[in-house]
Simulated assay, not measured.
Amino acid sequence: MSSDIRFTDFKSDKQPTWCPGCGDFGTMNGMMKALAETGNDPDNTFVVAGIGCSGKIGTYMHSYALHGVHGRALPVGTGVKMARPDIEVMVAGGDGDGYSIGAGHFVHAVRRNVDMTYVVMDNRIYGLTKGQASPTSREDFETSTSPDGPKQPPVNPHALALASGATFIAQSFSSDALRHQEIIQKAVEHDGFGFVNVYSPCVTFNDVDTYDYFRDSLVDLKEADHDPSDRDAAKEAILDSDKEYQGIFYQDENSVPYHEQHGVDEDMSVLPDGAPEGATDLVREFY
């Protein structure tokens, strides 16, 4: 889709404080490019973020934004989309934020099929709190708080999404810029809940799941002749513990998003008559 908007229009004047080399830089660039390429602009885009290194992304992107509390970004995004179904909603989080305290919200956002994009920056560690094991850390991954490893299998977010009825499940790698943008763009264009787990290496606290590791191990589903419309094939790839994949695992081309299923098409950001004095102005300022 052609657009006069460039991805740089989504850059705020705030300088990122992520560690040099952090995978989140590439993740964010792909998000901005995908939004611009799909014809969106900052005036019709709302970015919701959680807690952790990924939670800063709303500050670094020029759009409407809200920095929520830990694990609660998806309910906020759902509320925004229900109040303003006409705007593009993108939710950003990390593996700790999304698959630990936010796991319950993840399941229900998936099954509702709300028309928004959920980008999870998965570095398989808690980075902001200085290097503890996360829900996606390897079973033997040694940290300062788990010197023998967490001794439990990592969460498989794609399997959780598929079991919850997801209509779009994908994975990308922040360093593979063009492919990452393409996958995020497909998620934005999808009619329904577009879920993308992004391998976004932490260069400070994770010396196992590195850029080199992912470059050497990633298998692209597109090159493997995977059919994303085949749910059984998606299940097989998602449960394949011997490979690391990027690409679209599954997409339901007949997906009908929540707001269309239930006829939610009105702007509900304006409060009705009789609301407390000043409330309408507050809502207008917020949106």
Rank of each mutant, 00 (worst) to 15 (best):
68 G>D: 12
90 M>I: 15
136 T>C: 08
129 T>W: 02
134 S>R: 01
72 R>D: 07
89 V>T: 10
134 S>E: 04
79 G>N: 05
103 A>L: 14
86 D>H: 10
109 A>Q: 09
85 P>N: 02
138 R>V: 11
113 N>I: 13
95 D>W: 08
107 V>N: 01
105 H>A: 12
126 Y>P: 10
88 E>I: 00
81 K>S: 08
103 A>H: 07
91 V>R: 09
81 K>G: 03
115 D>S: 11
93 G>V: 11
80 V>G: 04
109 A>M: 12
124 R>T: 05
116 M>G: 06
65 A>N: 14
90 M>P: 00
72 R>C: 08
93 G>H: 14
72 R>I: 03
134 S>W: 03
70 H>K: 05
68 G>W: 10
82 M>P: 00
78 T>Y: 02
112 R>L: 10
90 M>D: 02
130 K>T: 14
71 G>S: 10
103 A>N: 08
102 G>Y: 11
113 N>Y: 04
91 V>H: 12
125 I>Y: 07
67 H>R: 09
70 H>C: 02
108 H>T: 15
86 D>N: 11
116 M>R: 05
100 S>K: 03
113 N>W: 04
107 V>P: 00
122 D>Q: 08
100 S>W: 06
66 L>T: 14
131 G>M: 01
90 M>Y: 04
100 S>I: 04
100 S>G: 15
105 H>E: 13
70 H>W: 06
73 A>T: 10
111 R>F: 01
126 Y>H: 12
121 M>A: 04
107 V>W: 02
123 N>C: 10
136 T>M: 11
136 T>K: 01
74 L>N: 12
95 D>P: 07
123 N>G: 09
122 D>Y: 11
96 G>K: 05
120 V>N: 08
118 Y>D: 11
74 L>A: 13
100 S>D: 15
91 V>C: 14
128 L>H: 05
